[in-house]
């Protein structure tokens, strides 16, 4: 895997806050087409894993039937590369940096409508999009009041108890917040694990 030391700050304006704070080993890499991209790390429940942000792709979350195509209004050359029921993924004709025209334009559009696209390799692979939730497995089951107190302290909203023991789903926020918050909770050592929740493509056979 090729890597370069040159640091290029990337990120989407709408989700950039804290992007570089999530994990100390954030780094850049070079994609197959020569574009630099940024990596982040998260705990997957068993081990730390590196994930790469694709600087030329953006997920547009489908909120209702009329929600599609906002990106095209600010980037006429955007090409739809993956169409799903939860989100569409667009490939744009420029690298999205904090100063790019696309990013500046998207900043004025509905919060939470767009999300970065991640991949498990610097050179491609299945696309993954953060849902905005964090999954936390505690060391033991917690009383409802304890759970609410803990969530409030962490700035999280309890969504649901999951069907595996002592495991809960919390809403954090859009952009990279779920990745950052999961890493922060994991690093605290007070839980069994904290994992960002992903949407990932599945295939019928």
């Amino acid at each position: 895997m090729l890597r370069v030391s040159k640091v290029i700050l990337l990120g989407l304006g709408l989700c950039l806050s804290g992007l570089l704070l999530a994990e100390p080993e954030s780094q850049t890499g070079v994609m197959a087409d020569g574009l630099s991209q940024q990596s982040m790390r998260y705990f997957d429940g068993r081990r730390w894993r590196t994930v790469w942000i694709n600087p030329q792709e953006l997920a547009e979350v489908v909120i209702d039937n009329g929600s599609e195509g906002l990106l095209r209004s600010v980037s006429p050359g955007a090409r739809l590369v993956q169409q799903g029921r939860k989100f569409h993924i667009w490939r744009v004709d420029q690298v999205m940096s904090t100063t790019s025209v696309i990013t500046r334009s998207l900043n004025g559009i509905v919060d939470g409508r767009f999300a970065p696209v991640f991949q498990l390799s610097a050179s491609g692979g299945s696309r993954m999009v953060l849902t905005g939730n964090v999954i936390v497995r505690f060391k033991q089951d917690m009383e409802a009041s304890q759970l609410q107190g803990w969530a409030q302290q962490q700035g999280l909203q309890l969504r649901q108890k999951m069907s595996i023991s002592a495991t809960y789903l919390f809403y954090v926020g859009q952009g990279t917040l779920a990745l950052e918050k999961a890493a922060q909770i994991q690093a605290s050592g007070e839980v069994k694990f904290a994992v960002p929740e992903w949407w990932r493509q599945a295939y019928k056979r």
Binding site: R85, N133, W198, W199, Q201
Partner: peptide
Amino acid sequence: LLWTNEPSIS
């Protein structure tokens, strides 16, 4: 689960 091609892990 696959009503969408991108199921969430939850």
